[in-house]
């Protein structure tokens, strides 16, 4: 009773705010919430001739293929491991570059380099994989041609799994750094010049100014990016892994993630149930993780929490 009154009262007093939020609410309701009904596919056997809710209920059968091959633990670890590195290195590098860029005074240089760092974002992974092959292939790759001309032994990168851990991380950073850098750059722009002036007067040098003003001011942005990234920590960068590794089974132990596994496993099988099941597994994991992290953040400082 009380709650209802509260809601009604709130609706009336803040009607304009509600109206302003309405388009977003409708959008997510239709585009995201309605299709959520489909998670039920994960528990049924797909049937072309009846509707979803009349299909046969099969319990957890559709999840079976995930652990059937005995690689689920490895896949989960790989997926999370890569994502953690991506998140940490990606943000640290983006922050560093954004700070460096923001301190540069040469306007044309600043603008030009910013634009160029954005370029890799547009390079399709398909093309990237071709370029990577061109550099690293055994017989005629750029790397081996160079090594040979110095009289050194050729290296067989495509059959050396551990190298790919680094290559994948490097290419991820290469492609995405421009994007996240812009976010930090925008945040730095938002910091009031007054703080810096005041710090200067107090005798803080450039490093101190960055450390005690800029970095703390970026915390909100960082926490937000972190929370979003953590929510999808079980969802891998499919294109990156799929295009760079593809059919090369030699590298799977170090480079296979859930998304590529599911894609390969179901490419020849028609099964909505199994693909939904895999998605659900990834979602649940992310959900639990994010609720925990958000709870902890909220305990420490309410300001930074997402909700």
């Amino acid at each position: 009773m009380l709650k209802k009154n509260g809601l009604l009262k709130e609706l009336v007093t803040n009607r304009i705010l509600f109206l302003m939020l309405l388009p977003a609410l409708i959008f997510f309701l239709i585009n995201s919430y309605v299709p959520m009904v489909g998670v039920y596919y994960a528990f049924t056997r797909f049937d072309f001739n009846t509707s979803l809710f009349n299909s046969q209920f099969v319990g957890l059968d559709n999840f079976k293929f995930l652990w059937q091959s005995g690689v689920l633990a490895r896949l989960t670890l790989n997926t999370i491991g890569y994502n953690i590195v991506f998140i940490l290195l990606g943000n640290v590098l983006a922050i560093a570059l954004a700070i460096l860029l923001s301190e540069l005074r040469l306007q044309w240089f600043k603008k030009l380099t910013q634009s160029i760092m954005f370029l890799p974002y547009f390079v399709s992974f398909v093309i990237l994989s071709v370029i990577v092959y061109n550099i690293f292939n055994y017989e005629s790759g750029f790397l081996n041609s160079t090594l040979k001309s110095f009289g050194m032994e050729s290296v067989d990168v495509y059959n050396t799994p551990w190298v790919w851990i680094f290559l994948i991380i490097i290419f991820y950073l290469w492609k995405n750094i421009g994007y996240s850098m812009v976010i930090y750059l925008a945040s730095i722009t938002g910091i009031s010049e007054e703080y810096y002036e005041a710090a200067k007067i107090d005798g803080a040098n450039i490093f101190q100014r960055i450390w005690y003003i800029t970095v703390p001011m970026l915390k909100t942005t960082f926490v937000m990016l972190l929370l979003f990234a953590l929510g999808s920590i079980m969802k891998g960068q499919f294109d990156l892994f799929y295009q760079l590794i593809g059919n090369n089974g030699v590298l799977y132990n170090t480079t296979d993630i859930l998304d590529t596994y599911v894609y390969r496993s179901l490419k020849v099988t028609f099964d909505i149930g199994m693909s939904t099941a895999a998605g659900l597994y990834q979602s649940l994991f992310g959900f639990v993780l994010i609720m925990t992290v958000n709870y902890i953040i909220k305990k420490i400082n309410d300001e930074y929490a997402l909700f």
């Binding site: 977003a24 609410l25 997510f28 585009n31 995201s32 919430y33 299709p35 959520m36 009904v37 489909g38 998670v39 596919y41 979003f228 929510g231 999808s232 909505i272 693909s275 939904t276 998605g279 979602s283 992310g286 959900f287 994010i290 997402l306 909700f307």
Partner: peptide, 17 residues
Amino acid sequence: AFMIYFTTLFGGGLVPW
């Protein structure tokens, strides 16, 4: 905010959409 954020965690998958 949670309602909006939640959609990044959970989804019905490609087919229902």
